[in-house]
């Protein structure tokens, strides 16, 4: 097992490069929906920085805030410091799991009783997050970006999306669309 937060530590310089301008939350779906800076990409980077410097402890609330991301990558497109935001969030998930910290985040989960092992989900997953082995089907919640394509294509309706933030991707899109039309 790697040393605590080994992956995140390797991003420390990137965290310093972030000028904390906040341009990343201009188009962040989560922020537009929740309207708290804690739900912004800048906020996630701050939390990770706090964790690495010992200023923050990985309590469940903090961990969920770091891993809650829809991987739309709008933040990366608007970041001119070119910080690899979503790669950092993915490494945070891996480091949390290594540290024995569980989280909900946003990931697909399978109902094994319904799964027919047809492997359609495995074929459509662009992140290669799904595997089938001796002990059944596995979804790697670090690799899973919660796009929902597996759930949409499963002929047995065996996959559900765990929405750690009480709002689905579709609902978020709708909020953002309504917001943009309003202004």
């Amino acid at each position: 097992m790697a040393a605590p937060y080994e992956r995140l530590k390797s991003w420390m310089h990137e965290l310093n490069l972030c000028i904390r301008c906040g341009y990343c939350y201009e188009l962040c779906h989560l922020y537009k929906s929740h309207a708290y800076e804690t739900d912004t990409p800048r906020g996630k980077l701050l939390l990770i920085y706090g964790l690495l410097t010992g200023a923050l402890q990985p309590d469940p609330g903090m961990v969920e805030k770091v891993v809650q991301c829809f991987y739309c990558k709008n933040c990366e497109r608007s970041c001119s410091s070119k910080v690899s935001l979503t790669k950092i969030f993915t490494d945070a998930k891996a480091d949390f799991l290594d540290a024995g910290i569980d989280f909900r985040g946003l990931a697909a989960r399978t109902d094994d009783d319904l799964c027919s092992r047809c492997r359609v989900c495995q074929a459509v997953c662009k992140n290669e997050a799904i595997s089938f082995g001796e002990d059944g089907k596995k979804i790697d919640i670090v690799k899973c970006e919660g796009c929902g394509v597996c759930a949409a294509t499963c002929p047995s309706n065996a996959i559900i999306m765990v929405e750690g933030f009480g709002v689905t991707r579709g609902e978020l899109r709708e909020t953002v669309r309504a917001f943009l039309e309003e202004v």
């Binding site: 904390r20 309207a35 708290y36 701050l46 939390l47 923050l56 402890q57 309590d59 609330g61 903090m62």
Partner: peptide, 27 residues
């Protein structure tokens, strides 16, 4: 209203070189 350590940490920063922590965030 927010007062979790995560919220207080984030609302104590801006785009400057400085950082501090409030006791409470009210919206």
């Amino acid at each position: 209203a927010r007062s979790s350590p995560a919220d207080l940490y984030i609302y104590g920063a801006d785009a400057s070189v400085h950082a501090a922590r409030p006791d409470l965030v009210l919206v």
